[in-house]
């Protein structure tokens, strides 16, 4: 530091300089972090934890079923639920943008209700109330159909708002250009506006997929057969059979196997979208 050669611009103050303050602040933050890690490591009973959650032989017994049955079902539930949600969400988004008042109101009410209710209640409603209210009706696809419907109903509410925002984010001139070329409003929407809207909403839609992936665990409230079990149910069943929690840990890792790469993909897409804007 060369603060002696010329007259200083500001009078010298006592105490720490700006740089010293910054060093001190950073040092304190590291110290708190290290203390927390040590406290956790010392206070946890690692022996019992390992005994309860990391029994290798139990984990080994779960394979390959945890992948071929449980993870497969989880993915299947998620993908069908996402498909239903996307289709329904698109319809609701277009209703929300309709020039016909009742469509707008209906879409608004749908979104408010299904965004406001816990997914669990929707599952119970589909599992219990629908068969009661319409005796004799079978939802196509049995459990798979019910899950797709329940997950789709919830997802549609969120996706409708995302899709609407995406459509509105496409500049007005795009619709004007399409209309002045002779496109009908519907055709312009399908050929010009929606493809651009999807580029904008790809990251939030992928996030929705991750949320659905986790919500698919709610299927256990519908009552499933052995072959229909997904990760959470499978892990829990096995945990109570073996009186050990290792299957829960393995099931959890299987979720992360999908969600972590998906999250990575979302961040990549968001970064790319940011770059495109610049």
């Amino acid at each position: 530091m060369t603060d002696t050669e010329k007259a200083p611009l500001q009078p010298k103050k006592k105490g720490l300089t700006r740089r010293q303050k910054r060093t001190l602040s950073r040092g304190i933050q590291y110290a708190v972090f290290v203390a927390a890690v040590i406290a956790f490591a010392v206070s946890a009973d690692w022996g019992r934890l390992q005994n309860q959650f990391a029994q290798v032989d139990i984990a080994e017994r779960m394979f390959p079923d945890v992948i071929t049955l449980a993870l497969k079902n989880t993915v299947l539930f998620t993908v069908t639920g996402f498909a239903v949600g996307l289709a329904l969400g698109m319809v609701i988004a277009l209703m929300r943008l309709s020039s016909v008042g009742p469509y707008r109101w209906l879409a608004g009410i749908y979104i408010e209700i299904f965004r406001g209710l816990p997914a669990l209640l929707i599952f119970i409603f589909i599992g219990v109330a629908v068969p009661l209210a319409f005796p004799g009706t079978e939802i196509i696809g049995g459990t798979y159909g019910k899950v797709a419907l329940a997950l789709g109903l919830v997802a549609a509410a969120y996706m409708a708002e995302t899709i609407r925002a995406g459509i509105q984010a496409v500049p007005k001139g795009q619709m004007e250009a399409a209309r002045s070329l002779g496109f009908s409003p519907a055709r312009a929407m399908i050929s010009i506006i929606i493809p651009q809207a999807f580029r904008i909403i790809l990251p939030p839609l992928t996030n929705e997929l991750v949320l659905l992936f986790k919500d698919s665990s709610l299927v256990l409230f519908l009552g499933v057969t052995l072959g229909e079990r997904e990760l959470s149910k499978y892990g829990r069943d096995l945990a109570s059979q073996t009186a050990n929690s290792t299957p829960i840990l393995v099931a959890g890792l299987c979720y992360l196997l999908i969600t972590v790469p998906l999250g990575f993909v979302v961040r990549r897409m968001e970064a790319k979208a940011q770059e495109a804007v610049k």
């Binding site: 500049p171 001139g173 004007e176 250009a177 002045s180 070329l181 002779g182 651009q196």
Partner: peptide, 17 residues
């Protein structure tokens, strides 16, 4: 839509897709 096919329009902001 039929009439607009006979009328070409060029915008200030280009409005290419």
């Amino acid at each position: 839509d039929a009439v607009r096919r006979r009328i070409g329009m060029v915008f200030q902001q280009f409005n290419l897709f």
